[in-house]
């Protein structure tokens, strides 16, 4: 039995204009940062979103939060009182809607305003939209979430410069969760931390999810972190989805050659993989000039004529498992 959907992303496209060389020239071309991605995040799950540089994972995360203009497609939130078309919201409506979705940043230094006390930082999602709330109510809520994030309440009157990276990240998490959002995008939330601290933050995120029932879209380049925290994984390459499925299954039996290559490439301390490793040659192509046909065809060791001509459909290959590869069945064995 699968959980009901919370966020439905349909045929999402985010293109960025490439400025011409001359001053004031109109856009010369586009970088298709996210190109036709369809993805459903289920209520209460952690969906891992992995990809290398240029994959569009950060862009996708920010587009869903309406932090970037979307070129085309649809984003629908299924809240308790009915579905909401997020792209149709504007101005005040959008600002009011924001309490349902939040972002946890990668850089625990840049994401906290050094001039505000920890209390004010955490309280921002409560105070900024201008809901009528008494200071007392806000304080109470801030204390509650701070305690949940294992922050000493004494810290609330301090400024961010008093804290190390790990503690700052807790503050960022507390801010994201204070308004009790259903959906949180974690954008490389632990990538800037030392390993010994990173584990602590990952545990905290998992605990909070259990307590609060939050849904995470967990964006990272680090597959081992994804393996640790997510229920399902989506693999992006040059703006397109390559594979999607339950974490354990993907890691045990990747269906897309790119996923296989990605998994083979991780330097690991534990035993080797159960599948035959795939080594890649060549560089990641420039996202402004992606290859024709399958985006991965220039680096895929199994690429054939068809791959270079025809964009493979993103299709369900087994129960709950999707991949965009013409020859997935053949290659799987």
């Amino acid at each position: 039995m699968t959980a009901p959907p919370l966020v439905e992303i349909r045929n999402l496209k985010v293109y960025f204009g490439v400025r011409g060389k001359r001053m004031l020239q109109k856009a010369r071309g586009y970088v298709r940062a996210v190109d036709d991605v369809t993805l459903t995040v289920r209520r209460g799950e952690t969906l891992g979103l992995v990809g290398e540089s240029g994959s569009g994972k950060t862009t996708l995360g920010r587009a869903v939060l309406r932090a970037l203009p979307v070129t085309a497609g649809g984003i629908r939130f299924h809240l308790e009182d009915g579905p909401v078309d997020v792209l149709a919201l504007s101005g005040r409506e959008l600002r009011r809607f924001r309490r349902h979705m939040q972002l946890i940043f990668q850089d625990p230094y840049a994401s906290l305003d050094p001039r505000m006390t920890v209390r004010d930082i955490i309280a921002e999602p409560l105070e900024a939209p201008g809901h009528l709330r008494s200071k007392r109510e806000v304080d109470e809520r801030v204390r509650e979430i701070a305690a949940r994030c294992r922050l000493n309440l004494e810290f609330l009157r301090r400024f961010p410069h008093a804290f190390s990276g790990g503690q700052r990240q807790r503050i960022g998490i507390a801010r994201a969760l204070v308004a009790d959002p259903e959906f949180v995008v974690c954008d490389e939330a632990v990538s800037a931390l030392d390993v010994s601290i990173q584990a602590d933050i990952l545990n905290l995120l998992m605990d909070l999810q259990e307590e609060l029932g939050t849904t995470y879209l967990f964006i990272t380049h680090d597959l081992s972190v994804v393996a640790q925290i997510s229920d399902r994984v989506a693999v992006l390459y040059l703006g397109r989805l390559m594979e999607l499925g339950p974490t354990a299954e993907i890691f045990a039996r990747p269906m897309h050659p790119y996923t296989r290559a990605l998994l083979s490439a991780i330097p690991r301390v534990e035993a080797e993989h159960r599948f035959a490793p795939v080594k890649l040659r060549g560089e990641i192509p420039d996202p402004a000039h992606p290859p024709q046909g399958c985006r991965f065809s220039t680096r895929c060791p199994f690429a054939r004529e068809r791959c270079r001509e025809e964009v493979p459909a993103f299709r369900e290959l087994a129960r709950d498992r999707f991949a965009a590869c013409h020859f997935a069945e053949e290659l799987a064995d």
């Binding site: 602590d200 680090d222 640790q228 997510s230 534990e270």
Partner: peptide, 24 residues
């Protein structure tokens, strides 16, 4: 030992990690 225990691994999904307590 702490470093290795804190390392997320590919072979065990959704396992609680063992962080090294405290800060550097």
């Amino acid at each position: 030992r702490g470093l290795l225990a804190a390392l997320p691994r590919l072979d065990t999904a959704r396992r609680r990690l063992t962080p090294v307590p405290g800060d550097i």
